[in-house]
Amino acid sequence: MKNIKHLVVGLLFGIILVKSEVISWFRIQEMFRLQAFHMYGVIGSAILVAMISILLIKRFQIKTIDRQTVVIPDKTFHWGNVYGGLIFGLGWAITGACPGPLFAQIGSGFMVITVTLLSAVAGTWFYGLIKEKLPH
């Protein structure tokens, strides 16, 4: 099945998230208190390696395994980037986890985080419900 490869990439990503302690609530507290370089190092070097990879893909016109041209859709600015970003930041510092780590924490055995994940799904659903009324 063609989605198995995505499951495998997710699995490897989940292992890295746990092994680097990125899913730790304590690491996020440390990051927002500017008392350690760890999280900044992880995110910064991830961005750098991803950026170089994308430049190489574009420069040498590397195709996907199905011989397709790699397409990265452009993001257009809307004020949700700001308002939503601030709201997510508030939540991130409380839960100590963004969506990826929420999944990894559940796998790690913190079953109570399934409640956090369900609540995040509810938050996403509520956004869909009131989207038209929000400034964008």
Binding site: Y83, I113, T116, S119, Y127
Partner: peptide, 21 residues
């Protein structure tokens, strides 16, 4: 911490159009 925090994460990321990844 468990419920309100999660709600803010889910609402905020969708409103912002993405998360850390």
């Amino acid at each position: 911490f468990i419920v309100v925090g999660g709600f803010l994460v889910g609402f905020g990321t969708r409103y912002a159009g993405g998360c850390t990844s």
